[in-house]
Design a protein around this nucleic acid. Structure first.
Lengths: 203, 203
DNA sequence: CGCATCCAATACACCGATGTATCCGATACA
DNA sequence: TGTATCGGATACATCGGTGTATTGGATGCG
């Protein structure tokens, strides 16, 4: 559908993606209608079909755009974190800076995960993104252990997986009970402890 | 809607719920059609509307039935776990026995979580279930610390939250990359370590 | 400034899912 | 065994979303 390329096309694509982010977060991917999204973006369905083949393609595009942003953010944070802070603070900074309070992104990426579990093609996309994210985290962890004069007892990639699981699992609980269980609690309390628990003196 | 009550009604309800479990897991809740579910259960839509008001109500009923099963299972496991095993083994038994490999339940409960985050009424249902599940886990943890002559440095409920987050977050990664990252990995490697990391000598 | 291409708006045809109203066989109970 | 209620099947009306074909205005380019 998109053939040549003129200036405003990328802009309307961006506006459609922004609208999709809000709409999917509110309604869920499957229940969201194309018309809802267009309305929010200030277009009609004509604009949509001129930019995407169908709702699925939009979903992929949205995921990939925002997933890339998350990785970029993580990479830029890597440079800024103060290595002299206690581990628990460093971890808190890492996790909190990824998405300050991005409920919407949590909802959408989780829904994309479900989609990926059912759909091998999407699984590849998601696994690829996850790998990039861990690749951005690993050097930070390495640095933390180094500065502390410790060595990790398991692969750093696995520790990155752990921190991600902790965060995602914790967010789910937090968003269900925002009052009783504020976001970031788990990482803050257990993140550093678990890192220490798999460390040994450096050779 | 169900008024009086005769023998086969609960049976057809059960068959519909079973069919819904499979169908929601395959297709997702929102995309699943009532007719799909009825077909799989061997009924027509007439049977459905005689038992449920709409798809949402079915979803709630399904979640509540299976969530209750999970809690029962956890409670029965609590009695059977061998307290002399090393912690990592005990935790492995706990988590593995909840659902041997229940992809379907993971998909559905995750989708219900998303629903709950958007919908306060569902959030109450989910929070209630989560609390029951943790209540089943806590005495097991207490026993583990006691036998080891240790005392937890944070509330046991919080440690239960941690283990649940670890499991759910880990399952998401595992189901996306079943070959590269087998299920149960995270709990097995980190579960005991983190429990020890928040333990102190008993007074 | 004029022409060609691009892009979003409009209009239309189609389909599939929902929910309700009705019917008839099955089941409980006296 | 007769009868009243229950439970699932059938038939129908309706609605909302999708995707395509076409139009007209905007934009880039010589």
């Amino acid at each position: 559908m998109p053939r040549g390329l003129t200036r405003r096309r990328p802009e309307t694509r961006a506006r459609l993606l922004d609208a999709a982010l809000d709409t999917f977060a509110e309604t869920g991917f499957q229940a969201a209608t194309i018309e809802q999204i267009c309305e929010r973006a200030g277009f009609t369905r004509g604009a949509f079909y001129s930019n995407f083949a169908n709702k699925d393609e939009l979903f992929y595009a949205l995921f990939e755009r925002n997933a890339a942003r998350v990785v970029e953010r993580m990479e830029s944070v890597a440079a800024q974190v103060d290595g002299d802070l206690p581990w628990s603070r460093q971890i808190a900074e890492l996790t909190s800076s990824v998405g300050p309070d991005d409920r919407r992104w949590f909802l959408i990426s989780t829904e994309f995960t479900l989609h990926a579990i059912r759909n091998p093609a999407a699984a590849v996309v998601l696994a690829d993104h996850d790998a990039k994210l861990r690749a951005a985290i690993v050097p930070i962890l390495r640095d933390m252990y180094d500065r502390a004069g410790l060595a990790p007892a398991v692969e750093l990639d696995l520790i990155a997986r752990l921190l991600i699981a902790l965060r995602e699992g914790g967010m789910a609980q937090s968003y269900v009970e925002p009052a009783r269980f504020p976001a970031g609690q788990l990482e803050r309390i257990f993140g550093a402890a678990v890192m220490r628990s798999v460390a040994e003196p450096r050779p």
